[in-house]
């Protein structure tokens, strides 16, 4: 596949409506949502921009982590006393009331750590949308990144500048993280 040029349309931070319109226009030009990604310094919900819902695995990873934590707790509570049985204070080897504490803490620990791991892993795993970045994003500007065939260039230019955007053609995909 030939390298496609990535375009970046930058909108001012209060131009949310214009952004939404621009997205609509791009779709009208036959650019599918998959080839567009919106980057912003402020969280806008997909609804606001009329974008399809994004999908994340973080909750599933979190729940998986919680289950792992629960199982670890079960092992520590009920498994380890059997490995080297030691009696203390006249208590049974495995006590249920105290186990609640361990269950709770380890489940929570599993949940919270795996939530973070989920965020981390998803953050550093490659994304399929158009890459590209501009520091002005963190100044609150809204960027629309998209791949477009070269023949659409004039049309694009006209439409987007008309909405008040600044267009950067062929933004370089700067390395933003360590790898």
């Amino acid at each position: 596949m030939a390298r496609r040029i990535i375009h970046l349309a930058l909108f001012k931070e209060d131009q949310v409506d214009e952004t939404a319109e621009a997205l609509e226009a791009l779709r009208g030009m036959g650019i599918v949502d998959r080839d567009i990604s919106v980057i912003s310094g402020t969280p806008f919900s997909e609804k606001m921009l009329g974008r399809p819902m994004t999908w994340t695995r973080v909750p599933i990873i979190a729940i998986a982590g919680a289950v792992v934590g629960f199982l670890v707790a079960a092992f520590l509570n009920f498994g380890t006393p059997l490995l080297y049985p030691i009696r203390v204070g006249g208590m049974a080897l495995q006590t249920i009331p105290t186990s609640f504490v361990i269950f709770f803490e380890l489940t929570m620990l599993g949940l919270l750590i795996s939530t973070f791991i989920g965020v981390f892993v998803e953050s550093i795993s490659p994304s399929y949308g158009p890459a590209g970045y501009d520091p002005r994003i963190s100044d609150g500007q809204i960027g629309v990144l998209f791949w477009a065939p070269p023949e659409l260039d004039p049309k694009l230019h006209e439409t987007l500048t008309g909405l008040g955007a600044e267009i950067i053609h062929g933004t370089e995909t700067k390395k933003l993280w360590l790898f």
């Binding site: 980057i39 994340t56 973080v58 965020v119 933003l176």
Partner: peptide, 27 residues
Amino acid sequence: RALALGWRGTEAEWARLRKAISIFAFA
């Protein structure tokens, strides 16, 4: 750069963050 984990501010990133923060805030 190392700490920001390549944050760009894509919709996916924001959605993830929102999700994670709300899990955290409740948990």
